[in-house]
Amino acid sequence: MLKKALCLGLLIALSVMALAQQTSQQARPPAAPKTHLKAGDAAPDFTLPATDGKTYSLSEFKGKKNVVLAFYVLAFTGG
């Protein structure tokens, strides 16, 4: 009888642990997205305002300059 109760107790404890692990995995934030773009793809054009008061489009550099786009997570963060 005691053995049975212990077994049942252990089973319940295990299932609670498994459930807890599952929910903690769901709560974890999604990994940083991986871009769908790859080398050789056409770069999507953009038109954006900049800190120097001008507005820049990627297309205006065509045939003139290479462009490095350094994406930052948020201002005042590292890197």
Partner: peptide
């Protein structure tokens, strides 16, 4: 992320 784009607009 950093993207390098050439003069033809290709990544």
């Amino acid at each position: 992320a950093t993207f390098v784009i050439d003069k033809e607009g290709v990544i």
